[in-house]
C-alpha cells in the first residue's frame, strides 16, 4: 500500500519536474531572439520543412473530409428538406472545429514527430553538444527557428485545409448531389461570421501550432539520447500533442462559443 502511494508521489514529482523543465526550456528559447540576418534564413528553411512539406497531407485530408461532410450532411438534411443548408454546415464545422483540430493532429503526426526525431538524433550524435562547445546556443540556433516555424505554419495550413474542405463539400453537394449553388453559398454566407467564426478558428490554430511545436521540440531536446529514447520521445510527441490539442480545443471552444 505504502509502495503504491510512494509510486504515485514519484509520478507526481516526475510530472511536475517535467513541466518545470519544459517551461524553463520555453523561456530559454523565447528569451534568445536571434538576429534577423542569421535567424531569418533558418526560419524560412524550417517553415519549408514543417509547413510546405505538410501541405500535401493537409490538402488531401481536407478534400476528403469536406467531401464526407457534404455526403453526410446531405443525407441527414435532405430528410428535413433543407439540404440547401449543407453549405452552412460544412463551412461552420470546418472553420470552427475540423480545420484547426484535424490540421493540428496531422501536423503533430507529420511535422511534430519529424522535429522530435531530428532534434533527438542531433542530441544523440552530440551535434547539440558540439554546437554548445563552439559557443553557439543550440536553443537559439536549432530550437527557436523550429518553434517559430510551427507557430507560423500551422494557421496557414489550417486555413488551406478549411478552404479545400469547403471546395470538396461543394464538389459533392453542388456538382454531384445537385444542391442549388446560389443557396449553398448564400446560406453559408449568412451564417458564417468573419470575426466570430473564421478568426476564432485562426486563433485556435495559432494556439495549437504553438503547443504542438513546443511539445515536439521539447521532447526532442529532453529525450534520452539512444535509439530507444528517440523512438519513445517521438511517440510521446504524437500522443501528448493530440491530447493537448483535443483538450485545448474544448477549453477554447467553451471560451469562444459558449455564451456564459
Amino acid at each position: 500500500m505504502l509502495d503504491r502511494i510512494a509510486a504515485l508521489g514519484r509520478l507526481t514529482l516526475a510530472v511536475v519536474a517535467s513541466l518545470g523543465r519544459s517551461g524553463r526550456f520555453l523561456a530559454g528559447v523565447l528569451a534568445g531572439v536571434p538576429s534577423p540576418s542569421t535567424g531569418f534564413p533558418l526560419l524560412v528553411r524550417q517553415i519549408y520543412a514543417v509547413g510546405v512539406l505538410s501541405l500535401a497531407i493537409v490538402v488531401v485530408s481536407g478534400l476528403f473530409i469536406g467531401m464526407v461532410l457534404g455526403l453526410q450532411g446531405y443525407t441527414i438534411l435532405t430528410d428535413y428538406g433543407s439540404e440547401a443548408a449543407i453549405g452552412q454546415m460544412i463551412a461552420l464545422t470546418l472553420v470552427r472545429e475540423l480545420g484547426p483540430v484535424v490540421t493540428a493532429l496531422l501536423f503533430a503526426g507529420r511535422a511534430g514527430s519529424a522535429l522530435t526525431a531530428e532534434i533527438g538524433l542531433m542530441k544523440a550524435t552530440e551535434q547539440l553538444s558540439s554546437m554548445e562547445m563552439m559557443g553557439v546556443d543550440p536553443l537559439r540556433r536549432v530550437i527557436a527557428p523550429r518553434l517559430w516555424a510551427g507557430f507560423i505554419a500551422m494557421p496557414v495550413l489550417a486555413l488551406i485545409f478549411s478552404v479545400v474542405g469547403v471546395w470538396g463539400g461543394m464538389l459533392v453537394g453542388v456538382d454531384w448531389l445537385g444542391v442549388y449553388e446560389g443557396s449553398f453559398w448564400g446560406n453559408m454566407q449568412s451564417s458564417v461570421d468573419f470575426m466570430d467564426d473564421v478568426m476564432n478558428g485562426v486563433i485556435k490554430s495559432v494556439v495549437f501550432g504553438f503547443v504542438c511545436a513546443w511539445i515536439a521540440v521539447y521532447q526532442g531536446y529532453d529525450c534520452v539520447p539512444t535509439s530507444a529514447g528517440i523512438s519513445s520521445a517521438t511517440t510521446k510527441t504524437v500522443v501528448y500533442s493530440s491530447l493537448a490539442v483535443l483538450g485545448l480545443d474544448f477549453v477554447l471552444t467553451a471560451v469562444m462559443f459558449g455564451d456564459f
Binding site: P155, V156, L159, S162, Q189
Partner: peptide, 16 residues
Amino acid sequence: AGLAALLFLALQVSGL
C-alpha cells in the same frame, strides 16, 4: 496561399 485562403474564407465563405 495562406493569405489567399484567409481572403477566400472572408469573402466567399463568410460573405464579408
